[in-house]
Design a protein around this nucleic acid. Sequence first.
DNA 1: TCCGTCCGTCGAAGCGCTTCGATGATCAGG
DNA 2: CCTGATCATCGAAGCGCTTCGACGGACGGA
Lengths: 328, 328
Amino acid sequence: MAGRGVTIADVAARAGVAASTVSYVLSGKRSISPETADRVMAAVADLGYHPHAGARSLASRRAGVVAMMFPIRDGMHLPVLMQFAAGAVAEARRHDQDVLLMTADEGPAGLARVAASAMVDGLILMDVEVRDPRVETLRRLGLPNVLIGFPADSEGLTCVDLDFTAAGRVCADYLAERGCGEIALLGAAEAVYERRTGFAERVREGFLSRPGLRAEVQPCPNYPTEVQRTVKELLAARPELTGLAVHNEPAVGHVMHALADAGKRVGEDFHVVVIGPDEVAERVHPQLPSVLVPAETLAQTAVRHLMRKLDGRDVPDSTLIEPQLTLR
Amino acid sequence: MAGRGVTIADVAARAGVAASTVSYVLSGKRSISPETADRVMAAVADLGYHPHAGARSLASRRAGVVAMMFPIRDGMHLPVLMQFAAGAVAEARRHDQDVLLMTADEGPAGLARVAASAMVDGLILMDVEVRDPRVETLRRLGLPNVLIGFPADSEGLTCVDLDFTAAGRVCADYLAERGCGEIALLGAAEAVYERRTGFAERVREGFLSRPGLRAEVQPCPNYPTEVQRTVKELLAARPELTGLAVHNEPAVGHVMHALADAGKRVGEDFHVVVIGPDEVAERVHPQLPSVLVPAETLAQTAVRHLMRKLDGRDVPDSTLIEPQLTLR
DNA sequence: TCCGTCCGTCGAAGCGCTTCGATGATCAGG
DNA sequence: CCTGATCATCGAAGCGCTTCGACGGACGGA
């Protein structure tokens, strides 16, 4: 039976050993004879024992919890965030950790609070901005942490991200190879750029970095009619445009529509490449090549790095995941 | 300065009082003279003191954390979930609680674990299914909890939800009033129905409940081309169809397109109503009437109810939020 | 003036766990 | 057969907090 209030003493009594022995069996920090260990484990199972998290954290100075601070803000691409959350929780559980959910509006003070109260052993910060006020706090706090994204000065921090610069470049390259001389990047909503979100800036840089192409970046809202309008205006303003990279997940279907309406034949006289989930690129007609934002992998990597740091092992300062272009 | 390792004893020393006095000042559980209280608060601020969460939970048997179990599953409508999460975290913080993030794949065992380890004081379960294995566990556990959604037997549980049955009915009514005799509900992905998610079933029921209408429910995938195909097939199969309710957020834009392609003039010879966020209904052309799924309100209500339960106050067993049709 | 209250504060116990040092028991080597 | 090392286990201390009972002083009523 599961039990409320089953303590280590109960387990110890039932197994006929001292409480400390139970603790050692469970943590493996001292060698225990197999017979004793078996008896203890049986008692644990019988009683449905789970150590009291507070007591454990008090005694061991380890909470078994990591905090993730999520950006819940304008223009953020929600599905990707959920993938992220799911990946992070799954990986954390594999390391026997739980995840505390924080939102970016708690800001630096929120970080200070969870750190000072020893609620969590480590922190993962998502959607880091180029100048992010939380980063300085993080440095002072000295709590092990991992950032998803790169702030302007990432010296001494552990950062993980897709190499968005490369992703932008890959898209430009793809379009160039298809013979496009004039191309555009249809990006996230304006707000994302204004906020100076790292990934948006990097994609732009990468996209514009290829010499010999006329390229521009066009922010784009997330709603059907506005996507259509944006595309229409873009085509009107740039009649020579023959290549488009779309880094705005919900827009993709509508972009395809607008292109069709404008008489562009995608894959023939016009080329489109997507930065986003595979499904988005697969489930339009015609299917599009795409660069995946590997949210789950990023989340996993971030959590793993954090776990290594918690164990005092070292991790690379920056991990940039190479973008993969999938042709379809 | 923020401080690692600032304890209540440090605060007490600096304020020249006993540790217990500090505790009473902070909790307000005994009366303390204003002068003493001021001195204590000053010391707290100076030292950047935050109580050690583990110690507090051990001594007071209150963790200051609630768990939310999220459905991260096929066909779930992600943006709504994020609104939910954001609303819940914000409200929880207002009550000085933190939120532990769990995913539905942890299942009943996960609930048992967090309960037994006294990690959390309460639980919020989202996306409850008609027959949900977690519900039985929840009953046994005796941890205060609130469900978002209604299981088949909600006896003795606290459940909160939009009245989806009414929402379905409101949509059917709207279409009927516009003179539609044959209508359809374009719903979530098939998987959501198969899983017997409560809200999907209820919308269906409500939608089909109005007498004198030929009505049917059509599950619909979330991707552009499939949405188009589904709509096209539906129109072909039901030439008399003149009204459509769409309960599938990302599909709305594509539905509108497919209708336009089929020569339907929405608002004139054909009517569409949306169940979903305002933006989705506003940002298509023409703007559509819609029933809002008030994710943030639901989350807030759920958290508030949970807080009341934690305080031993009582709460209504079931809270059904009345759907509002917004005409545009 | 004395006693009973009440208020503000203190000290100590104890929440359930981990961890350190100590203790027997066992065993190999001389 | 004794010594020293090694192994398995135990007991006690202590993590930082809350809470209970106690206590001294102020104050009001008789």
